[in-house]
Amino acid sequence: MGNLLYLYGLIPSKEAEQSLPALKDFDGNGDIYMIPVGKITAIVCNLDAENYSEEMLKERINNDMEWLQEKAFHHHETVLKLANLYTIVPLKFCTLYKNQDSLENAVIENEAKLLDTFGLIKGNEEWNLKIYCDDHLLKKQVGENNPTIEAKKEEISQLSKGKQFFEKKKLDKLIESELEAEKNKTSEKIHLQLKGLALRGDVKKAWSNDVTGRKEDMTWNSVYLIPKTKVESFLEEVRRYEKDMKEKGWKFEATGPWPAYHFTSF
């Protein structure tokens, strides 16, 4: 059945003069290589169509975490190495083309958009920020410093013991919702300030504790496109938040620089 093409990324052909380092392909057997398509050059490898049918990919992604982990790391590491050498529009995991023609057509169709995108990401870096919060610590503060809750507490203390039990349950719920509001407000404020240092900033969905496997809640997940000259100040700022808010139960985790997955599309 021949070969499929696994597409890692697209770079400006001007930069393709710098030769590709030897990088192993998706299967670990061959090397990755370039396909020039006018002003744009695709970085790809061959994949045996028989081993990589749609069913096989679904099956593997669905049931074979070990495979997913190995291949996701391969994809990530390869694109990261390329991003250190070229201005690259990175492709998502497992972007496959049935043959060179279909890849070339896709590139030609999107040429103008791709050239714009190179302009946008050149000289900039993508960074991710996740904010975590220890609810237990924060809940105590909200419970102590929030006027709505203070008033409610006072009201409850006047009630009979039996009524107090149920009212306290309700109060816990109130604290819970005030807490969520407080967390969001604080995170958003930080996000807007950090966005000021960036070219762009977007909010992503925060993950549940099932996904993170952590006891602290993820309250914020955001991504920024930052001029290289401003990355240091951005990270210093994150560090300052971390230092100032640590004792109140907040944690800040920045990762990067990522290939600009979020701020490009193909």
Partner: peptide, 14 residues
């Protein structure tokens, strides 16, 4: 891995 999947998969893990 989870950070990587969040980035390299189309719309993230969540």
């Amino acid at each position: 891995l989870i950070d990587i999947l969040d980035v390299i998969l189309d719309k993230g893990v969540a």
